[in-house]
């Protein structure tokens, strides 16, 4: 059992949980993730570790409440227990050897991208962060991101905060303005990652995305997380989750991630009735 040391809401549908897991905290690197199962009846879901605190032996998870399990998680409180936390899983992001990086986070992806920016910044690599949100109400981690970047650009789809537009608008502008990024790291919804890949492709800038396919075991045993990269089948949980964005078959992955839509909507309905609706 893994104790929740701290729980708070970052916005109405994003929760931050500090969970005691000293072994994992001690070992995990940026880009790696854990799989959690809340209780005996729960589903196993993957979440990236946004931060670790070795003084208390905790890992920080930031979850967007989009379905049954994430809503249930978002409704847990400080002092509650999570039945299973498995990790670190996946390969750490390859972050060494770059001269100028652009880290892009979309929505809750900002939380997942944050440790990468933090690592680069600590190694004195110039790093820009572009974080995109639907509107001002769901902006998260602004202060934290500011502290680990040379420039932080926030975009909102509706223009209710900072720049109006998508992350790719800002990215293309920066590239055109002569920011010589030699790597772009993008984490967020698949649509966003695909747009980033398309934006950097003409410039030949190395672009890494973290793929959030549907997972069960996270050890390479079930094949549910399979993705097509460079025409080959890869398992995101063991071969990734990071891949070369220009090689990823996003269409196939988008279809696969919608596979359980129907059941999930039913479960979601159930969760909303249980937890009083969080959407």
């Amino acid at each position: 059992m893994y104790k929740i040391l701290e729980k708070r809401s970052l916005n109405e549908n994003t929760a931050l949980l500090k969970v005691k897991a000293p072994d994992i905290a001690n070992k995990i690197l940026p880009g790696q993730f854990v799989i959690i199962r809340i209780d005996e009846f729960g589903e196993r879901i993957p979440l990236t570790v946004a931060e670790t605190d070795n003084t208390v032996g905790s890992i920080t998870l930031i979850a967007q409440m989009i379905g049954f399990t994430t809503i249930k998680l978002g409704n847990m409180e400080t002092g509650d227990y999570i039945s299973d936390v498995i990790g670190p899983l996946g390969h750490p992001t390859q972050l060494d050897g770059y001269n100028r990086a652009c880290v892009i986070g979309g929505g809750v992806g900002a939380a997942i991208a944050y440790p990468q920016a933090k690592y680069l910044y600590s190694k004195r690599v110039p790093v820009d962060i572009i974080a995109g949100f639907r509107n001002r109400d769901i902006v998260i981690l602004e202060k934290e991101m500011k502290n680990v970047s040379d420039n932080l650009y926030i975009t909102t789809d509706d223009g209710s905060y900072c720049e109006k537009g998508f992350v790719t608008d800002r990215l293309i502008k920066n590239i055109k303005d002569g920011k010589n990024y030699d790597v772009v790291l993008a984490i967020g919804p698949l649509m966003m990652m695909r747009a980033v890949a398309n934006a950097t492709r003409p410039y030949g800038i190395k672009t890494i995305v973290s793929l959030n396919s549907i997972m069960i075991d996270g050890t390479g045993m079930c094949g549910s997380c399979r993705v097509t990269v460079g025409g080959e089948m890869k398992f995101a949980c063991v071969d990734g989750p990071d891949f070369d964005a220009h090689e990823v078959d996003f269409e196939s992955l988008i279809r696969r991630n919608n596979a359980y839509r129907k059941q999930e909507l039913e479960k979601l309905d159930h969760a909303c009735r249980l937890y009083g609706g969080n959407r």
Binding site: D217, S224, A259
Partner: peptide, 16 residues
């Protein structure tokens, strides 16, 4: 077509 929605490895199906 092996990446289609609805194709399972036996391991995934049996694990579920």
């Amino acid at each position: 077509g092996e990446d289609a929605v609805g194709v399972y490895s036996a391991n995934e199906f049996l694990t579920r």
